[in-house]
């Protein structure tokens, strides 16, 4: 199931020609996806999430497929999310919802909602590099 999701994500990324790197030009806004309210995160979320690149509350948030699976073994699910260029560790749940290391116990419907929730949580603080001891 995760492989299928991954292929879907990678395929969508290739089609969009989007590479998520710090210098990537802003992509057109994907169809609006509201930050997930409690009702949403209870539902199974189907389909491939939309890549995004936007400024939210003064922070640049970006998300999209990772083409190689990334340099780090913990980049599960084929997606990378960044806040001001720093990677946010994210994970996809079996029901299609998402969590991050900043909001670990409160699933969100999409990576964009996850990035926005992280911006709120961070209150302006910078992410620090991941350290998997």
């Amino acid at each position: 199931m995760s492989r299928l999701t991954r292929r879907q994500a990678l395929g969508a990324g290739a089609a969009a020609g989007l590479a998520v790197v710090g210098a990537a030009p802003p992509a057109p806004a994907a169809p609006a996806t509201a930050a997930a309210p409690a009702a949403v995160r209870r539902r199974t979320v189907h389909g491939t999430p939309q890549p995004f690149d936007e400024v939210y509350l003064g922070r640049r948030i970006q998300g999209g497929p990772s083409h190689s699976g990334g340099h780090h073994a913990h980049h599960a699910d084929g997606w990378i999310v960044r806040i001001d260029g720093q990677e946010l560790h994210v994970m996809r749940n079996a029901d299609g919802t998402w969590i991050s290391v900043v909001n670990h116990y409160e699933p969100q419907a999409t990576p964009r909602a996850l990035a926005r929730a992280a911006v709120l949580e961070l209150q302006g603080a910078s992410l620090v590099p991941l350290d998997l001891a």
């Binding site: 199931m1 599960a76 994970m91 749940n93 670990h104 991941l130 001891a133």
Partner: peptide, 21 residues
């Protein structure tokens, strides 16, 4: 704290999972 975070980040629904989920 380090041990817990290591498991939090590596326990996945479709891979090896020990401390969570």
């Amino acid at each position: 704290v380090t041990t817990h975070n290591g498991f939090i980040m590596s326990d996945t629904d479709h891979g090896p999972r020990t401390g969570h989920r």
